[in-house]
Amino acid sequence: MDFIGAYSANNLFYLLKGFLVTIEVSAYSIILAFIIGTLMGIIRFARVPLLSQVVALYVGLIRNIPLLLVFFFIFFALPEVGLKTSVFTASVAGLTLYASAMLCEVVRSGLNSIPKGQIEAARASGLSYVSTVRYIVLPQALKRMIPPIMSECTSILKGSSLAIVITLPEMMRSAQIIYNYNVKFVIPIILMVAILYFIVNFTLSFFARKLEKRLTIS
């Protein structure tokens, strides 16, 4: 092991460049997956004719295939039919497609956890179905959805490392390039990668707990 050599300024700078790519890809994917997953979850909860069945089919398909296969399909298969994308776009698309299916089920389960009596009471008081979901069901369900949503966010962050298979210059690929140069750097570099992942995931969990407490109090 060579901690001093592994943690040289050049190596740390190169690793941090990959770390920033990891954060950027994860951030885009989290935002897009949350929007798409929420919409799909509401569609499934409301049992919108036809759309609900299409979403259920999509969710069932994505949840039963590995994320690696999604990356391969987007980056290697789609160009065969004329849909070529950059590595960055393919990575964001793959993570978004995969995570949105998971978040769809989180949202649907959260909405279904609200007693039906509240929905019936709101409807009886004259609220439309959309207003009932927006003002009565969704705010309550959100409090229950925060832990699994944040868990999925950390999964997206960790899942971004799998984009190494399509040569995304994220943190794990940067780490691989560094320790391939010198085998003595393997343990120090992997340790640094683990620390960086831990810091981000711990920070996400910390703010999730704060947000959950604030929503519970309010």
Rank of each mutant, 00 (worst) to 15 (best):
M1Y: 11
G5W: 03
A6V: 00
Y7I: 03
Y7F: 15
A9K: 15
N10Y: 09
N11F: 03
L15V: 07
L15D: 06
K17E: 14
K17Q: 15
F19C: 04
E24R: 07
V25Q: 02
A27F: 07
A27V: 14
S29D: 09
I30Y: 07
L32V: 09
A33C: 08
T38M: 08
L39S: 11
M40T: 13
I42R: 07
R47E: 15
P49F: 11
S52D: 15
V55Q: 07
A56Y: 07
A56V: 11
V59D: 07
L61M: 13
I62H: 10
N64F: 04
N64R: 05
L67I: 12
L68Y: 08
L69I: 14
V70R: 08
F72C: 05
F73E: 09
F73S: 09
F75H: 09
F76Y: 12
A77N: 10
L78V: 10
P79H: 08
E80R: 14
E80V: 12
G82I: 13
G82W: 11
S86R: 05
F88R: 04
F88N: 05
V92I: 13
L95H: 04
Y98R: 08
C104Q: 04
V106R: 05
V106Y: 01
L111V: 02
S113V: 06
S113E: 01
S113C: 06
I114D: 12
Q118W: 06
E120L: 10
E120Q: 13
A122M: 08
A122V: 05
R123E: 14
R123H: 10
R123V: 09
R123A: 13
S125K: 04
G126D: 04
L127K: 04
L127F: 07
L127I: 05
L127N: 06
S128I: 03
V130E: 10
V130A: 14
S131Q: 14
T132M: 12
V133I: 15
Y135N: 11
Y135H: 13
V137E: 04
L138F: 13
A141N: 03
K143C: 04
R144M: 11
I146E: 06
P147V: 08
P147G: 09
M150A: 15
M150C: 15
S151K: 03
S151E: 10
T154R: 09
I156F: 01
L157G: 02
K158D: 04
G159C: 04
S160G: 02
S160V: 05
S160A: 13
L162Q: 12
A163L: 00
V165Q: 06
I166E: 01
L168R: 03
P169S: 09
M171I: 15
M171L: 11
M171E: 04
M172E: 05
R173C: 02
I178E: 02
Y179P: 01
N182E: 12
N182I: 07
V183I: 15
P188E: 06
L191Q: 00
L191D: 00
V193K: 00
A194T: 01
A194M: 04
Y197F: 02
Y197S: 02
N201F: 00
L204E: 01
F207S: 10
K210T: 10
E212D: 06
K213D: 10
K213E: 11
R214Y: 13
S218T: 11
S218Y: 09
